[in-house]
Design a protein around this nucleic acid. Sequence first.
DNA 1: TTTTAATCGGATAAAAAATTCTGAAAATAA
DNA 2: TTATTTTCAGAATTTTTTATCCGATTAAAA
Lengths: 148, 148
Amino acid sequence: MTVIFSKKCEYGLQAVLYLAANMQEDVVRVDVIAQALNIPKEFVSKILQSLREHGIIESKKGKTGGFSLAKAPSQIRLIEIVEAIDGLGIFNSCVLGFPNCNPEHPCPVHDKWGKLRTEAYKMLSEETLDKFKERTLDKIRSISTSDN
Amino acid sequence: MTVIFSKKCEYGLQAVLYLAANMQEDVVRVDVIAQALNIPKEFVSKILQSLREHGIIESKKGKTGGFSLAKAPSQIRLIEIVEAIDGLGIFNSCVLGFPNCNPEHPCPVHDKWGKLRTEAYKMLSEETLDKFKERTLDKIRSISTSDN
DNA sequence: TTTTAATCGGATAAAAAATTCTGAAAATAA
DNA sequence: TTATTTTCAGAATTTTTTATCCGATTAAAA
């Protein structure tokens, strides 16, 4: 089985959504995020570090340390997180895996798939984190009540 | 980076498209397919074996052996190959990786992504192999003229 | 009947992705 | 200043995916 985004990317998106939904906190510790999302602490830690290098979030070291968004939620788009972690390759590579798939040498589903891909890209580019606060809080609540 | 389908699935789709585009041949040898598509012979061989087990293609052993479609191209849909190899999980799992993503506990992008996913599924379910013959032949020609 | 050329099937190897470990560095609080 | 608690950085490990190898089986041709 395969997925659209790598696990790294999924976790990164979840973690950033979490931070956006908890803006009232100064910073959030990685173990708090990991527990809320039920994902490995050390792994999400690595992902958060790389998102910091990409300027999407920022960190504070030492006691009272943790992570927070580097910009206002309304200034962060989902596509930025995807680009930082998985890159944008998915939006210009052939869905059938053919090499050099382009308008000159299109694969059999080039046009139809291209349309869907463009819509997906558009959606991720238009949506900013501030739109998701309530839905994220709801979703996170459903995680902690259902598991383990 | 990630892709929609696994490499196995991509190769499987390519190989079946190749068989559909070469219906005039009784059977096609796996090394011919592998060379035409520029993919590892032993790997595509394994994939073809599994597609045979799923009843999508059939094989003939021994000298003059090879692979051919098990049904008419107009009776084979792209989604069948995807289902046989990667399964349909991608069409009902959460794009953000959240567990139990459903209408009761939707993730932040549940509705918008669900729409795209449904369109993708629909496209793969409607398209049958007979629609692709010319485009596949074109594409395969462009592979052998461009590489190595 | 023997040789040849193909798929089959199971094991193995290599590469990539996901995860964990370890210890250092930073910053607060005692 | 020292103890504590956090992120940071890089290495090591595990798991999954991708790819290869090899001997057996099958069937046509010599």
